[in-house]
Write a protein that binds this DNA or RNA. Structure first.
Length: 1014
RNA sequence: GGGCGAGUGGCGGAACUGGUAUACGCGAUGGACUUAAAAUCCAUUGGUGUUUAUCCACCUUGUGGGUUCGAGUCCCACCUCGCCUACCA
């Protein structure tokens, strides 16, 4: 082939790209008569670097699918847009001191030119850009709908904070625990954040995966990320430490003036405490003889000589204080429920309690409390009060706050005076003070007898609560502070030893065995998951084992592996010899559960929980690793969150008619010192009138994350110019769900999950017709650099697609990207390999030139058959995304056609048709040169003839003991008899089996005959 | 540590439900064309051995076992690499 016979890609490609655009060849109209096919690529982020050689790989692949689908008669939607908000642009803007909006505009322009040079059949008329106000107006509108639905809330959350850049970082900006930009170790900072309740959808996000067609590994990644685990919450009671020794558990309950009603709330407490082995004294005194009088006090102390705890209610409170003062006895804890201020004027209550001795009560006012003395005698004071108590005013509580500031004051809203007539008010909180307990989450309740200690996360609230009981509180506090200051990296570094500290003086009771076990605080237990506390079973959990070994805590084996002797199982001794056995098995050392299996419907897992449930000590529980979605970003370049903080009304939505809340232009994009968004500094933007009351208000200055705009862009494509709705119901009904969605594996957790959640929320609001956004999801492999590493600017190994297009043409680039390897796998780029596909296209071109002179009919049967086989193969390969083998099939056909003696125009045209999705420019050029007057891309996809695909004659294989020994040409439907007959005449085979004994013969129709000899 | 996936020539890779391993492409070698080079075309190209008339034999899909008439493909163990994830009880 000479130079002249090579085609000029510059000329051809530009010509057709312009023509197609002029003719609107790829503009899609909604057409209910045609079957729709919605084919979607992840829209790119228009970075300053421009397109990278990885983009065309997936775009071409889906372009091929889209083109084929069109030829098959579908109405195809194949749109394109840009996901343009986000940090890289903001950072770049700060660096070059330009407006991110201007930078974005330039970048998109560059991307458009590049994308257009590839001959992709996008419908550019539907282009969507997330940073356009017409687009983000609707992102904000949807946010408001979700806000109104109660899916959005505000919460103080620790965010990643770079102390050097003074900036909040998104998770994806933290690389190995360090700031992506400056390399400083990232710490945590508490900031109020807007959150999405994605956890509410956790179960549905798992369940509905059954209704969609995703690659298995994508499904499993989603399921893993959501991380459902079934288990149980079990309460471990804390042993009240001061009672452990010589003291008896003795509680005195002192009621108020309404002594006749004390049964309204005392009995339950009395019962519970008695069940726990406490002695309980409730002075059963007539109301008229209320215990203010010193005589009574003395009598009381005589009869209850060893009281460790006093619970008092209402007027019982000053009485109890008086009691403590007068008797000068040490009390462990004093719990005051709705305590009365003794200085209060009680006259107005005379009528309500006519039987009370008001003369005696009035003496309260005369009491002189010696607060110092009282406080010396009581170790711990707890005060419960309510916000709607008709008898106890806030001033009463202030009285106690003034005199006993050390007490813990607990407001329980809506409890009234804690003595409602209608029923008994139970105060589990109070019980927690008397008999505190730790709730733990476990997936292995069957190992509970092996729980030799408890571990609390450092942030666990019980630590503070047990403060008076902890003998080494200073040490504990130091540990907690230290672990809070640790960076995430340090805290999750598995290589480092686990650390922890024991709460000395505190013991917990194993509810199954009744054993006393120590309680530790350690940061290998996470606050955010489960209950923030675990029972440690060192014999059957690696982490617990490691910790127990370090701190010399007991290890009790309670599960024995079931020994099954089977060749297909790992050897049982290997399992048995491990110090930690985390599998299932039979129970030992577990009291009455010994001998049960750990698993199964009748196993210990179920049985133990059932039994503990009856005692009110356990409950089945399902936990998810998935956390709520932190939706706030303290950055400039994102959609403003359309909320307003009003001094009077609190948080108020921006009115729909006032959307979009536009990003103001500012001079400085640098984040602020405080971690607030740069928007906070723009006074005339921040200060607004409240949409509700018209009063003073401030705008929310946080912006949305990138994931917002990309959660619903595919909906906008269906109706991109609608200014009344985000998309019309009609368009949504016709086009959704997306039939085929391709993207990178790196987006299968975050983007895909967020987007599915967002869509489900819209579905619940009846704003979209389907509960799942994407019917099918596939994923492409990365294009690696020639050295096999990731392409990156810093390594200087990036290949620019523009250079390839310039030198070899878009068709060549497209075909090479398809040919390089399996679509789903990462493949290194090989510039040398490109010439192979270019040579192939040159061959096609040459064949085309020759074909012009050919007759309409007359072709070798062999070529005809191969053509039909190739049509079949290419059709199937595109359906299965096996583009590499489709290309190779096309190459084989072209090689054969080149060497063929006889070939006709129709055969060549069919080749062009099946090649056209891969190389749209060249095939269009040749198609029209051959005298056709309509674009090849408007033609139908050719069908193969099944008769021609089947070979008449086949190469039949003769094996001896499975090894190939001979081949012979046979009719496709050859019988065993015919083959055997052939064998008898074959001297070669006869020789080979001459001195052997033929055991049997295996005949596989249409394939082979295997002779088994000895 | 967990999850998923992959190991096939000098290289990228192919092989449908177990049935001819190495398709297709790159590279390499030799030849044709050319003053020469490029381009193009033709031939060869997994390894070893033997023979050189190119016939033949044996070996070969990370390693070691197993199932089977037959294993790149299925099972078990191990090794290596990649991606995602990370103390989730």
């Amino acid at each position: 082939m000479s130079e002249a016979e090579k085609y000029d890609h510059h000329l051809i490609e530009k010509k057709w790209q312009d023509k197609w655009s002029q003719d609107g060849l790829y503009v899609t109209k909604d057409d209910p008569k045609k079957d729709k096919f919605y084919c979607l690529i992840e829209f790119p982020y228009p970075s300053a670097e421009g397109l990278h050689v990885g983009h065309p790989r997936s775009y071409t692949a889906l372009d091929i699918v889209a083109r084929k689908k069109r030829m098959e008669g579908n109405n195809v939607l194949f749109p394109i847009g840009f996901d343009a908000f986000g940090l890289p642009t903001e950072n770049y803007a700060i660096k070059v001191k330009k407006n991110p909006a201007d930078i974005t505009k330039d970048n998109i322009e560059r991307f458009r030119t590049q994308l257009k040079s590839l001959g992709l059949s996008f419908d550019w008329s539907r282009e969507v850009v997330t940073t356009d106000t017409e687009y983000y107006k609707w992102t904000q509108w949807i946010f408001l709908q979700l806000y109104k639905k109660g899916l959005v809330y505000q919460s103080e959350m620790p965010i990643n904070w770079c102390p050097s850049c003074k900036i909040g970082l998104a998770n994806e900006e933290v690389v190995n625990g360090k700031c992506e930009r400056c390399g400083t170790e990232v710490t945590k900072k508490n900031l109020k954040q807007w959150m999405f309740k994605i956890t509410q959808y956790a179960q549905r996000l798992i369940d509905d995966l059954d209704t969609v067609d995703y690659l298995e590994k994508i499904k499993s990644q989603q399921i893993n990320w959501i991380g459902r685990s079934e288990g149980a919450e079990v309460s471990f009671k804390i042993k009240y430490p001061r009672l452990a020794g010589n003291k008896t558990k003795h509680c005195l309950i002192v009621h108020g003036v309404s002594g006749h009603r004390r049964e309204n709330w005392f009995p339950w407490l009395k019962n519970v405490l008695q069940e726990e082995g406490w002695q309980v004294g409730v002075p059963d005194l007539p109301a008229t003889d209320h215990p203010v009088v010193n005589d009574w006090t003395k009598a009381l102390m005589d009869s209850f000589s060893d009281v460790s705890t006093i619970v008092c209610h209402s007027l019982g409170a000053p009485a109890a204080l008086n009691l403590i003062q007068e008797t000068n006895r040490e009390i462990d804890q004093l719990i005051m429920v709705a305590p009365v201020n003794p200085l209060q004027d009680w006259k107005h209550l005379n009528k309500e309690f006519p039987h009370a001795d008001w003369d005696a009560i009035k003496k309260f006012a005369d009491l002189k409390f010696d607060w110092k003395k009282i406080k010396q005698n009581v170790r711990k004071v707890v005060v419960y009060y309510s916000d709607d108590d008709p008898y106890i005013s806030p001033e009463s509580i202030d009285f106690y706050k003034k005199h006993i500031p050390e007490a813990s004051f607990k407001l329980l809203p809506g409890k009234g005076h804690f003595n409602e007539r209608k029923g008994i008010i139970k105060l589990p909180e109070l019980l927690d003070d008397l008999i505190p307990s730790v709730k733990i989450f476990t997936t292995r309740p069957d190992t509970i007898f092996g729980a030799t200690y408890l571990v609390l996360a450092p942030e666990h609230e019980l630590v503070e609560k047990l403060k008076p009981e902890i003998n080494n509180f200073e040490e504990v506090e130091k540990y907690i502070k230290a672990s809070q200051n640790k960076s995430d990296l340090e805290r999750t570094d598995l290589a480092k030893d686990k650390t922890g500290v024991e709460l000395k003086g505190v013991k917990a009771i194993n509810p199954a065995s009744g054993e006393e076990i120590p309680v530790w605080v350690a940061d290998y237990v996470l606050t955010g998951y489960g209950t923030g506390a675990i029972m440690a079973v060192p014999a059957h959990d690696e982490r617990d084992f490691e910790f127990a070994t370090k701190y010399k805590l007991p290890v009790i084996k309670v599960i024995e592996p079931i020994i099954v002797h089977s060749e297909n199982q790992p050897h049982p001794e290997i399992v048995a010899n491990k110090s930690v056995f985390a599998g299932e098995g039979n129970l030992i050392n577990s009291g009455k559960y010994n001998g049960l299996t750990s698993f199964g419907k009748l196993g210990a897992k179920v049985k133990i929980i059932e039994d503990l449930k009856k005692l009110g000590l356990a409950d089945s529980s399902v936990q998810y690793k998935l956390r709520d979605w932190i939706f706030s970003r303290q950055h400039y370049w994102g959609e403003p969150i359309p909320l307003v903080h009003c001094e009077k009304c609190g948080i108020v939505s921006v009115l729909e008619k006032d959307l979009p809340v536009e990003l103001p232009k500012v001079k400085n994009y640098e984040p602020t010192e405080t971690g607030e968004s740069p928007l906070a500094g723009i006074k005339d933007w921040v200060n607004v009138k409240c949409p509700k009351c018209g009063g003073k208000a401030k705008r929310e200055t946080d912006t949305m994350p990138n994931w917002a705009g990309s959660s619903w862009y595919f909906l906008r494509y269906t109706d991109p110019h609608n200014d009344k709705e985000f998309a019309s119901q009609q368009a949504l009904k016709y086009w959704t769900p997306v039939d085929l969605y391709n993207g990178g594996m790196e987006h299968t957790t975050l983007h895909l999950l967020y987007s599915r959640f967002w869509h489900k929320a819209l579905y619940d609001l009846k704003l979209v017709p389907t509960s799942e956004p994407y019917q099918k999801r596939i994923s492409h492999g990365m294009v690696l650099a020639e050295d096999g590493k990731k392409m990156s600017k810093s390594l200087g190994n990036v290949i620019n697609p523009d250079d390839v297009v310039k030198e070899y043409g878009a068709d060549t680039l497209r075909m090479y990207e398809m040919f390089m390897g399996p679509f789903a796998e990462a493949i290194p780029w090989d510039t040398k390999g490109i010439v192979g596909v270019r040579r192939f296209l040159d061959k096609v071109y040459l064949l085309g030139l020759r074909a012009k002179g050919l007759g309409v009919k007359g072709v070798d049967e062999k070529i005809k058959s191969l053509l039909h086989k190739t049509i079949k193969k290419v059709t199937e390969d595109i359906n299965e995304f096996r583009f590499n083998t489709a290309v190779s099939a096309l190459m084989i056909l072209v090689n054969e056609m080149q060497g063929a003696r006889k070939i006709d125009k129709i055969t060549f045209e069919k080749l062009l048709l099946i090649l056209s999705p891969f190389a749209p420019h060249l095939t269009e050029e040749l198609w029209l040169q051959l005298g056709n007057n309509k674009s090849i891309h408007l033609e139908s996809w050719p069908k193969f003839d099944p008769r021609l695909v089947k070979d008449q004659k086949i190469e039949f294989v003769i094996q001896i003991n499975g090894k190939l020994k001979d081949k012979c040409l046979m009719p496709a439907d050859v019988t065993e008899e015919d083959v055997l007959q052939y064998l008898e005449q074959s001297s070669k085979i006869q020789e080979l089996i001459a001195d052997k004994q033929v055991v049997k013969k295996i005949f596989v129709p249409g394939k082979l005959l295997n002779i088994v000899v000895k």
